[in-house]
Amino acid sequence: MKKKDIILALLVVIIWGANFTVIKLGLGGVPSMLLVVLRYIITAFPAVFFIKKPNTEWKYIILYGLFVGVLQFSCLFYAMEIGMPAGIASIVLQLQAFISPILALLFLKEKLKAKQIVGSLIAASGLIIIGMAAVSDGISAIPLEAIVLTAAAPVFWAASNIISRVASEKAAAKGEKLDMFSLVVWSGIIPPIPLLIFALMLDTPQTLWNAVINLNGISIFAVLYLAFGATLFGYGVWSKLIAKYPMGKVAPISLLVPITGLLTARIVLSEQLSAMQWLGASVILTGLIITNVNFDIFKNFINKQSSNNVTK
């Protein structure tokens, strides 16, 4: 990956890591489904009146909006509302890093390199270590429904990665370039209505209305952060990287999210970070390095030095 893209990816990681703590703060004053509705209303409006519709078929816009906004976030936000800790949620969601390359292999015929497999397995073991620490710290107290919903969220995220890649390739086949930021904005008009229906299934209209008219400063901050930071910037940059590089190269970078997620949850929410979780974070970093470092550079350097020595 280019240096500029690596920096952008790291910014996304930081913003997405803190995102889980922000969600938890937002849920303190707003019901889960309503919080996602507000997130996407701010994301899409008034931006759709100023940003041109992406040059792709409506089916891709609708599918992307459904998988990211409706399915992924309805699962994640409700799971966190009923008891999933922010730090653990940031870990579980990163299963997409392994699901995405597998789906790319199945649907896009992308090949997995040996270093990607090895690096992903090492990083996966890091997630397991952090998960084991969570078990020893009382994950059994988390409702089973919350665990299942959180585990479902990365599946939908991975599917949205495939959708954005297919839409991008379709545009490229016509000699056009898909504007990923535009895709994020326009797909934002899809989630509010389905999510509002979900909200009315979980809470009364009066409860939802009271939450809207009594928004406090923290809730407003949470909505703005989720809309502008996590969605417009985060998914805008992420979709560009997914379209630009192989899935197996980009998806594992999100494994850094649990590190910033755990740190933020520890600082803001006082969620404990154990020595075992730190070990897991270090293992994840090792896996990411193996997956993303271009070892050909080192091979070429060594070969060049060997050639110079022979010449001498």
Rank of each mutant, 00 (worst) to 15 (best):
A281T: 03
A222Q: 12
L279I: 10
N292D: 04
S239L: 09
F181S: 08
F221N: 09
T204D: 02
I197D: 09
I297D: 11
M276H: 01
A222C: 09
I242N: 06
N303D: 13
R266F: 13
N294Q: 14
P192E: 12
P252R: 13
M180S: 14
L262N: 04
K177Y: 07
L224D: 04
A243P: 07
Q277M: 13
G217C: 08
L226F: 10
V257G: 01
G229K: 09
A275Y: 01
P192Y: 14
I284D: 00
N214D: 09
N300T: 11
N292V: 13
I267P: 01
I213R: 12
G229T: 09
K304D: 13
N303P: 00
I242D: 03
T264G: 00
A230S: 15
A222L: 10
K240W: 10
A265Q: 07
A199F: 09
I297K: 14
A222P: 07
G217K: 07
G217W: 10
P258C: 03
N210Q: 13
I220M: 15
S182K: 09
W209N: 04
W186P: 04
M180W: 07
I193S: 13
L263W: 01
D296T: 11
F228C: 15
P194R: 07
I193K: 10
I267V: 15
V184A: 06
V184I: 14
L279Y: 02
K249Q: 12
M201S: 08
L202I: 03
S274W: 01
D179V: 08
I218W: 11
G188E: 07
L215R: 10
F298P: 05
F301M: 15
T231I: 09
A211W: 07
I259W: 03
G229W: 10
T286H: 05
D296G: 05
F228S: 08
E176R: 08
L255G: 00
L273I: 14
T291E: 07
S219G: 12
R266L: 05
L288W: 04
T264A: 15
I189P: 06
T204R: 10
I290M: 05
K244L: 13
N294V: 11
L279A: 15
K299E: 12
G234I: 05
L262R: 00
I259C: 04
R266V: 01
F298T: 08
S239W: 02
M276Y: 01
K240E: 11
Y245G: 06
I284K: 00
I242H: 04
L256Y: 00
Y245K: 11
S187D: 03
M201F: 14
Q305T: 11
Q272I: 11
P205Y: 04
G234E: 07
P258S: 06
A265L: 04
L256G: 03
Q305F: 10
W238G: 03
A211Q: 11
P194K: 14
G248F: 08
K177Q: 13
T264D: 00
T260Y: 01
L224T: 11
N210A: 08
F228H: 07
K240P: 01
K249M: 12
S282Q: 03
K244V: 06
L183H: 05
L262G: 06
V257P: 00
L215G: 12
T260H: 02
